[in-house]
Simulated scan of single mutants.
Amino acid sequence: MMQINRVKRKPVAEINVVPYIDVMLVLLIIFMVTAPLVTQGVKVDLPQASAEPLDQDSKPPIIASINAKGEYFLATGSENGDPMSVTDLATVVAARLQLDPDTPVIVKADRSIEYNYVIELMTLLQRAGAPSVGLMTEPKQ
């Protein structure tokens, strides 16, 4: 009878990392593509002041913006949102505050805008149900 010699293989204790690298590269590409889309707001030249920033643990605020032309915007997640009328802005803010009344409301106004526009917007937001309205600034340099 013929005898077959079998070679015993030792188990390999290495991890194949190639699939993990592939997954990481795909995730990196996804994040690189989506990161510019996440920024929100309207280009506004904010006044500078030394103020305390919002807590990182707080809810994302509702940001009502006024640009230098006096047009109203609401932060919706798109870079170039369309201008809104004052009544539309008040309706959207009131609806969001009914869903979550603890959401902070912030006014983001261009530094060259007349003070009257800011006061009108703050009054409008308080009528829409905002318990308090904050003002957004840039830190002093």
Rank of each mutant, 00 (worst) to 15 (best):
L37V: 13
N80E: 10
L27N: 05
Q48R: 14
P83K: 14
P47M: 10
A90R: 09
Y115A: 15
G77W: 08
M32A: 14
V12D: 06
S65A: 15
S58I: 09
A35W: 15
V105T: 13
I29W: 11
E52H: 07
M2L: 03
S50F: 11
V107G: 07
T123Q: 09
M122I: 11
I106Y: 08
V33Q: 05
A35P: 02
F31R: 08
Q48H: 13
V93P: 05
A128P: 07
Y117M: 02
I29V: 15
L124K: 12
E138G: 05
G134S: 06
I15N: 01
A94L: 02
R96C: 06
K8S: 06
S112Y: 15
V38A: 12
F31E: 03
T76M: 03
R96M: 13
K8D: 08
A35L: 09
V18E: 04
Y20K: 01
A64R: 04
K59E: 03
L135M: 12
D110Y: 11
N5T: 05
S85F: 03
K108T: 04
E138Y: 04
N67S: 11
I106Q: 05
K43L: 05
A35Q: 11
K140V: 14
T91Y: 10
P101W: 09
G81S: 13
R111M: 10
A90N: 03
I62H: 14
L125F: 11
V26P: 10
D22I: 04
K140H: 12
A51H: 02
D110C: 12
K8L: 09
V33T: 15
A13C: 01
D45G: 06
M84H: 01
K59V: 01
I113K: 06
A51I: 11
A94D: 05
P19D: 03
T123S: 10
G129Q: 10
A51T: 09
T103L: 09
M32E: 06
I21A: 05
D100Y: 09
S58P: 00
